[in-house]
Simulated assay, not measured.
Amino acid sequence: MVRSHDYFTYILASKIGGTLYVGVTNDLIRRVSEHREGTASRFTAKYGVHRLVFFEHHTSVDQAIAREKQIKRWKRAWKIQLIEARNPNWDDLYPALA
């Protein structure tokens, strides 16, 4: 029996148009909280990247990882288009989740 689970591909930003970070997790609220506390990644802690500006839900970890890798290979302009298609003001989506 195959059970579906929740996995997320997400993008964090330091500010509008700022430094971007692409990640994957099975617990979006926990992971973004760790980024905000500075414990999840040296990169996000160093550059102040903690604004959740985009996320996608997946039911397969393989799908989520494949999407993360795809987005990481994209040009910066394409990542910005992805963010702005759903979140044109680069609002921090975390408070609505937590």
Rank of each mutant, 00 (worst) to 15 (best):
K69M: 02
A77C: 08
H57G: 01
R36M: 05
I16S: 10
A66S: 14
E56Q: 09
H50S: 12
L97R: 01
F54P: 00
A66N: 14
A64V: 07
M1F: 00
I83G: 10
A66P: 06
L97V: 01
P88Q: 10
H57Q: 03
A40N: 12
L12Y: 05
A98P: 08
Y7C: 04
V53Q: 05
L52Q: 07
A66F: 10
K75E: 04
Y10R: 00
A45I: 08
Y47F: 07
W90P: 10
V53W: 02
T44Y: 03
T9P: 14
P88M: 11
A85P: 07
S41Y: 12
I16E: 08
F54R: 04
A77L: 01
L28Q: 02
L82F: 11
Y10C: 03
L97Q: 03
F54W: 01
V22H: 09
A85G: 11
G17H: 12
P95G: 10
S4D: 14
R67P: 15
R31Y: 11
P95Q: 03
E56L: 03
R51F: 05
E68I: 08
S41E: 09
F54C: 00
I16D: 09
G17W: 14
E37R: 11
G17I: 15
T39Y: 13
D6A: 11
E56F: 00
L12W: 10
V2Q: 13
D62H: 09
D92N: 09
S4Q: 14
S60H: 01
R86I: 02
G18C: 11
S4I: 15
T19A: 14
I71M: 06
H57L: 09
P95E: 06
F8Y: 02
V22K: 02
F54L: 02
A96R: 03
W78R: 08
A64D: 02
R31H: 15
S41C: 14
I83T: 05
A40R: 09
G48R: 13
P95Y: 11
F54N: 06
A64Y: 10
R42V: 04
S14V: 12
Q63M: 15
R36V: 10
K15V: 11
L20G: 00
R36E: 04
I65T: 03
